[in-house]
Design a protein around this nucleic acid. Structure first.
Lengths: 130, 130
DNA sequence: GCACCTGTTATACGGATTATATAACAACAG
DNA sequence: CTGTTGTTATATAATCCGTATAACAGGTGC
């Protein structure tokens, strides 16, 4: 999996990393048990500081996406709290959909976007058949 | 429409204001032509600084939700660029849905959330006459 | 003209966050 | 013992957030 930083983005580097890795898990580009590069290796690879990568990894651990092991490094390990996940989605979707509704984005168009993204993410192998 | 600040939130005040106002437009609690409180009045009302409110209004103007008039103040005026709106939604939905997918939130559950929010916005707490 | 209200701009300050840098530490593998 | 892992501790510069005071330009009502 290729991780990159958009140095012109106004999004913090460590957040860019978090989102890319979470997207990677969702698209199964990386999956449970896989190991992420070490903080130093990834920092060198993408040209940022070690601590910035470490901050991303720590956040991923806190949110339950990876477990950090001194022996192996950062291992993908999902701690699934579906109820909490849905609650967070409800909050975030409200903000995203509200912006769309203000711009006359219809309910059907929102559904189409959801399908589009689910299709895009589940291309390849079918761990999740729905 | 009631605007409030969660002083314990980690979300910036001006972003809280932006999101609440956009939600207000989406739910039609406020609609095109309505006037928002002046930056000074709203700042006094919710107990924050004038410039913080001004920052929120400026961002709403830049994103095309209001127009600022020296005579009347901040007026809701939607500048609808649907294509751009959908493109932004695609980007934001990807991040939100990815987190859900990692937690085994199914496609149907995502659709249910979209419906739930659309229902809440269109039926829930419509326009309140002054 | 005058008082009063708009948004707007400028400047300044304290605090928090972001990213960097250097350094050291504990735990494990070979 | 050497090298790797994550982790922690400082320190620094830059940026952002929120506040504060002040002034300005444009419009309203008297």
């Amino acid at each position: 999996m290729i991780l990159k930083i958009d140095f012109n983005s106004d999004e913090a580097f460590y957040l860019q990393l978090c989102n890319q890795i979470i997207l990677g898990i969702a698209t199964e580009a990386i999956c449970e048990g896989d190991v992420l590069p070490s903080v130093r290796a990834l920092a060198d690879q993408i040209g940022i500081n070690m601590h910035t990568v470490n901050k991303a990894y720590s956040m991923l651990r806190q949110e339950g996406f990876v477990k950090l092991d001194r022996r192996r490094g950062a291992v993908i390990a999902l701690d699934i709290d579906k109820l909490q996940a849905i609650q967070e989605m409800r909050q975030n979707l409200s903000v995203v959909l509200a912006r769309g509704i203000c711009r006359n984005v219809s309910r059907n168009e929102a559904h189409q976007l959801v399908d589009e993204i689910y299709d895009l993410f589940s291309k390849g192998s079918g761990r999740r058949p729905e």
